Simulated assay, not measured.
Amino acid sequence: MIRFEHVTKRYADGTTAVDDLSFEVAEGELITLVGPSGCGKTTTMKMVNRLIEPTGGRILVDGEDIAAADPVELRRRIGYVIQQVGLFPHKTVLDNTATVPHLLGHPRKKARARAAELLDLVGLDPSVYGDRYPDQLSGGQRQRVGVARALAADPPVLLMDEPFGAVDPVVREHLQNEFLRLQSTLHKTVLFVTHDIEEAVRLGDRIAVYGAGRIEQLDTPATVLGAPATPYTAEFVGADRGLKRLSVTPVEAADLEEPPVVRVDDPAGRAADRLAAAGAPWAVVLGADGSPYGWVPATALTGTGEEPAPQDATVRTHARRMDAWLPLGAPLRQALSTMLQHDAGWIAVRDGDRHLGVLTPARLHSALRRATTADASGTSRGEIALDTVPGAGAPL
């Protein structure tokens, strides 16, 4: 969809902002451009809509050399979102969002209807926010309007220049989540500029790590973090890149332990027999519908705990609630956060409605080590065998 062919930008004073840049962005792909200030990432993005003209090479969008396109018409076909949002203060939210469709000649009624659809899509009810003005919105809400306006003409390409950089960390994470949700539905081709490596890792299908005017490495977030191609990339992503990998390493079925499973309405005696046969000190408890309910220790079921178990008791009588669970494929970062939130030694993992097993801190650590080793060695995660310190893999 976007192709750079030996693109260079050199200014009259001899400064080279971008030097012989060649790479492609596939249709529907989101590439994050990340690097320190002055490295050329914003210049790269602005050359796509000709806000900056290259001094050498070619840029093609959907096979068309943009040098032959009218700059104004080109910009109307490319969505553009910036950190300062740039909303018109004298226009309502609805009219701001309808700006580009109106400029493209769409009837006012049609443009406003499209604007209302987009506001709803980004989580702003048009009946509530449509008639407000930008100064009546929070920073996060203005950013949402900026995204909606960029999408209003349904452009195939979206350029985003630090769009969430001006809001606080909590709002920023929420906006990132919303944008990932939108992208999973709309599949736009996106160049996303950021100076934040964690944001780049979280959002990008691939990451372009910039040095001075050039790309040091362009690869998936997992590979950039697990196998930096150059010393510069390794230094830029940081010594804690193993922790950053938590955001891009999914929970897999092979990471899970499988303790015995009982249901809340099972007779306590029968559940106790099952644990005894398995030699297990506890079991995962599922609700009647198969959803995670909690856990139960064997001592409670057998009556060897603090109180004897009634003869007619069910597992529910002695089960201990714990709502910590995740879907298969969730990132390890979410798994760790859930463990900490619930102060839990394990969390249940499900595939749809089916309980698969539990993830413990030890298994989470092993999953991260296998993923990092796999990227460094160029093999699959499932082929990696780890040497562990004796006792380190015991469940908590």
Rank of each mutant, 00 (worst) to 15 (best):
T299F: 10
A277N: 08
K244A: 13
M322H: 11
S247E: 14
L275R: 07
V251A: 01
G303A: 03
P250L: 09
A227C: 10
G305H: 03
S247R: 15
V285G: 04
A272Q: 05
P228Q: 00
R316S: 07
P228I: 00
R263E: 11
V264R: 14
R321F: 02
D265W: 01
L275M: 10
G294Y: 02
H318R: 13
D289L: 04
R241T: 09
R263Y: 07
A278V: 06
D323L: 14
E235I: 05
T304E: 14
D323M: 13
R274S: 11
P308W: 00
V315K: 01
E257A: 15
A309F: 00
F236M: 03
F236H: 01
P308G: 03
H318S: 12
V315C: 06
T314Y: 02
D312H: 10
A229F: 02
V248Q: 01
G305Q: 04
R263N: 07
A239H: 15
A300K: 06
R320Y: 05
Q311L: 10
G287E: 14
V261P: 06
V237K: 01
F236V: 01
D265N: 10
R241W: 08
D273S: 15
A268R: 03
G238H: 04
L286F: 04
G226V: 00
P308C: 03
D255A: 10
L275V: 08
D312Y: 02
A313I: 07
E307S: 12
R316Q: 11
A253F: 00
P259D: 15
T317W: 10
P308A: 02
P231Q: 11
Y232G: 12
L246M: 10
A313N: 10
L243R: 13
E258I: 02
D323W: 04
E235H: 13
F236E: 00
R321T: 08
D273F: 10
A313Q: 09
L286P: 05
P267A: 06
A239M: 14
V296H: 04
G238W: 01
W282L: 08
E307V: 14
R316E: 13
V251P: 00
W282S: 14
G279I: 12
E252S: 10
P228V: 00
M322E: 14
V237S: 08
R245K: 13
D266N: 07
A253Q: 15
V237M: 07
V264D: 14
T230L: 13
P310T: 11
T314I: 02
G290K: 06
V296F: 02
P260T: 04
L256P: 08
T302L: 05
E306A: 12
M322F: 03
D265T: 10
T314Q: 09
A229V: 03
A277V: 06
G269I: 01
R316F: 01
A229T: 04
A319C: 06
S291Y: 03
Q311A: 14
T317E: 12
V285W: 04
A239R: 15
M322C: 14
V261R: 13
A288S: 12
A313L: 07
P260M: 05
Y293A: 15
D240N: 15
P228M: 00
A239C: 08
V264Y: 03
P267I: 02
G303C: 04
R270Y: 04
A280S: 15
